[in-house]
Design a protein around this nucleic acid. Structure first.
Lengths: 157, 157
DNA sequence: CGGCAATAGTTGCATATACAATACTTGCAG
DNA sequence: CTGCAAGTATTGTATATGCAACTATTGCCG
């Protein structure tokens, strides 16, 4: 009865994509936060530290770009990690920029947290099934690519 | 080179599901907020009002449950909408509970915002493709079901 | 009726998020 | 060299989010 067309009517998206993603984010992040909380980190902080470890000392702006988040958000997200001594902020080469780096304590903390992260990821894999998680990852990755504002690509001129 | 096993090795999820979902949420919500902002609403507020319209006057706790969000989050999310006069909070039947309802102004505002929402959704559909959006919806809906804490289901005993 | 567990909502605290406005540098044009 | 545009980060403001603690009611048990 909800089908209004007799033949060859293409199905269309129903409901709000935004609300769905938000809801999923709320549910999922609680699992990660519950596990990572045992190591004293939130999911976002774990991810932030992972990027700093991976990308080495770098400027806040570049880090924000890498994580596709607003620079002002990053500034604030850095604060608790700097206060805890897990990251350091030193003057950058350029007088107007800074340099963010992982500290030894930060590296230790992250390695410890990584074990908790693994458990969280395994719980999610278990609840959703690995195939579904992989499908979700693929779909999200594709979507992120399609939504990303195409930057000039080439270094021409 | 990244493939380490010669044959019959099942692929496994790579990377962090939490971070991916969060990133997608950030990107997507900006499209909706940009459109809905023209009507003076955020995406979350639009969804909240939709629920109140749909579920009629109801208690905050029930609304929070319907939206699968923490009750304290709801309390705070209601505030700007109450202040704007789009929702009303009256004493509930029970002395300890309240009743949240849409106002006439709220209904008007929401109907106006709905046009902006449609544009946002169309933009997303266009950028991702309707098929991909539908696949994403399905996957998210399934995941939400699987993550939902199974309530007692039956009213046994 | 008196006390106490259960229920409903809010507040305290900390973080996450982004847009707009601001501060500070740098670099270039004149 | 001066001044202004561009680049980089931060602050102001407002919302979103959840856990823990708290307040207020209700309802029941004795």
């Amino acid at each position: 009865m909800t089908v209004k067309s007799p033949v060859t009517e293409k199905a269309r998206p129903q409901g709000c994509t935004n609300y769905r993603i938000r809801q999923l984010m709320r549910q999922v992040s609680q699992f990660y936060d519950a596990e990572l909380g045992q190591a004293g980190l939130k999911g976002t902080q774990y991810a932030l530290m992972a990027h700093v470890i991976q990308l080495g000392p770098l400027r806040p702006g570049d880090l924000a770009k890498a994580m596709k988040m607003d620079a002002s958000t990053l500034t604030r997200n850095l604060k608790p990690l700097l206060d805890a001594g897990w990251l350091s902020r030193s003057p950058g080469p350029d007088g107007r920029s800074r340099s963010i780096a992982i500290t030894d304590a930060g590296r230790d903390k992250w390695r410890q947290a990584r074990e908790h992260w693994k458990r969280a990821q395994q719980r999610i894999n278990g609840m959703l099934g690995e195939d579904r998680v992989m499908a979700l990852h693929s779909l999200i990755d594709e979507s992120l690519d399609l939504l990303a504002p195409h930057e000039p690509t080439g270094a021409d001129s």
